[in-house]
Amino acid sequence: MNEFDELMSALGTAGGDEAILADPETAHLVVVGNRIVSSRSLPGLEVEADETEGGVRLKIRLREGVHLTTPVHTCFGVVHREGAQQIEIEVVLERNSSARFIAHCLFPKAERVRHIMDAHIEIGEGASMGYQERHYHGPFGGIEVIPKAVVRIGSGGRYTSDFTLTDGRVGSLAIDYDVEAAEDAVVELTARVFGHGSDEIRIRERVVLDGENARGIIKTRIAVEDDAVAEVTGITEGNASGARGHVDCMEIIRDRAVAKAIPIVSVTHPQAKVTHEAAIGSVDKHQMETLMAHGLAPEEAVDVIVKGMLG
């Protein structure tokens, strides 16, 4: 089986559908290690992709007023037990354009793999970008994942991101996102991670609401078991009239796992408002008892609660 086939096999295991890559109406890019093995663009979507020594460098631009009706699929991965991949991405959505991106990050055999993503995203006035990042790391936990993104949203723009790593081991994960929102811009950051074994999860997300009536929410859902550790830092700054922000963190721990939440809220304008809530603990007793009263065994009830929370 060649590398592309191996990656597609992992995509199937992770719940993806290889058939999307054959769809002429869907843009895509597949990168294995530092090799671009498949790509398709669409009118209004410009993609420059260069192979580098350790990965790829991508420049993606969506032209003004272009609305992509199908998501752009990207597939990044390392199919060997050892390796490294560094993705450098610059994304520009010109004014009043919109697109959704789905990134499949696949490391099915990782025993000693490092994956770094460094993204710079500019979302123009009135533009909208949805970004889903779905990871599959296999069962060994020998992977280090470092996703870093700096996002600037123009007035009236919207950015939603949804990071999911709930199948297989996490390994070591260090998310670092910084988002600045101009007036009337909206930002929603969601991360869902399930850590096992000795996994380490560190998430730092910062939303700066600099524009009037900018709105932002950081939502984090973490479950950790065995000896896994998680530390979540959610930072929201409200710096303009009408800015509204919220940090919402929920972490469930089991066994010897340790979880920590650090919400940091800062307001520098009297008409801005930022709130936060964090809940960390074992599975809620009342939820457990309710499900058990339906006949579910304790482990089945935990499974329902954790799966629900992780979406």
Binding site: R221, M250, D284, H286, Q287, E289, T290, M292, A293, H294, G295, L296, A297, P298, A301, V304, I305, K307, G308, M309, L310, G311
Partner: peptide, 23 residues
């Protein structure tokens, strides 16, 4: 245990029902 009683045929609607995210 609760689930064993439930499997025998007892169930309960609580005064303050639990809420479940994502269910």
């Amino acid at each position: 245990k609760i689930h064993e009683r439930a499997q025998l045929g007892i169930s309960m609607a609580w005064q303050e029902p639990a809420r479940f995210e994502g269910l």
